[in-house]
Every structure is written in structure tokens, then in C-alpha cells.
């Protein structure tokens, strides 16, 4: 099951990989990047390319983060 959040978050990266993010006043440490891929929307409408990360945090939570090419991170959804 998923719960859509779609909220901007702050992310700490090592290289290009996210290693932690803060949301709701709490810091979540990423223990595993399960999968990642790039998605391009309607490019002729100038929709930005996003990189999707499915991650597992230290509290066993499963999250989907989106990185937009403009440098913005979004917590897109929580698998709960």
C-alpha cells in the first residue's frame, strides 16, 4: 500500500546517491537504495526530468524520493 506525500524535503547526498533525508522534523538515514531510474515527462511541454529513488531507511520504512533536474528533492510516497 502506498501513501502519497508529494512534499519537498532536504536530502543529504554522497556523490549522487541520497544517504539521508529530513522530513517532518526528523532525520531518516537511508540504509539501502532498492532501485532508481529516470523518468521524463512531457518534454515538449518542458516538464523536468526526474530521477526516482526507492529507498529503505534505518527504521525499516520504504519511501520513494524524486529528484528533479532543477535540484529539488520531493518525498513522493511512503509504502506503508
Amino acid at each position: 500500500m502506498t501513501h502519497r506525500v508529494n512534499a519537498p524535503i532536504r536530502v543529504i547526498c554522497r556523490g549522487k546517491q541520497p544517504v539521508a533525508f529530513s522530513w517532518g522534523g526528523r532525520l531518516y538515514t537511508i540504509v539501502q537504495v532498492i532501485d532508481s531510474w529516470k523518468e521524463m515527462g512531457e518534454w515538449w511541454e518542458k516538464a523536468p526530468e526526474i530521477t526516482v529513488y526507492q529507498v529503505m531507511t534505518d527504521d525499516q520504512g520504504l519511501y520513494e524520493l524524486h529528484y528533479q533536474a532543477v535540484g529539488r528533492w520531493i518525498l513522493y510516497k511512503i509504502y506503508d
Binding site: M1, T2, I34, D35, Q54, L62, E64, Y79
Partner: peptide, 11 residues
């Protein structure tokens, strides 16, 4: 079927 499962979790 697996796609349905994947809609609940990436694992």
C-alpha cells in the same frame, strides 16, 4: 500479478 504486488512495495 507481480505488478500488482509491486504497487504495494518495491520489495
Amino acid at each position: 500479478f507481480w505488478d500488482t504486488c509491486a504497487s504495494f512495495s518495491p520489495l
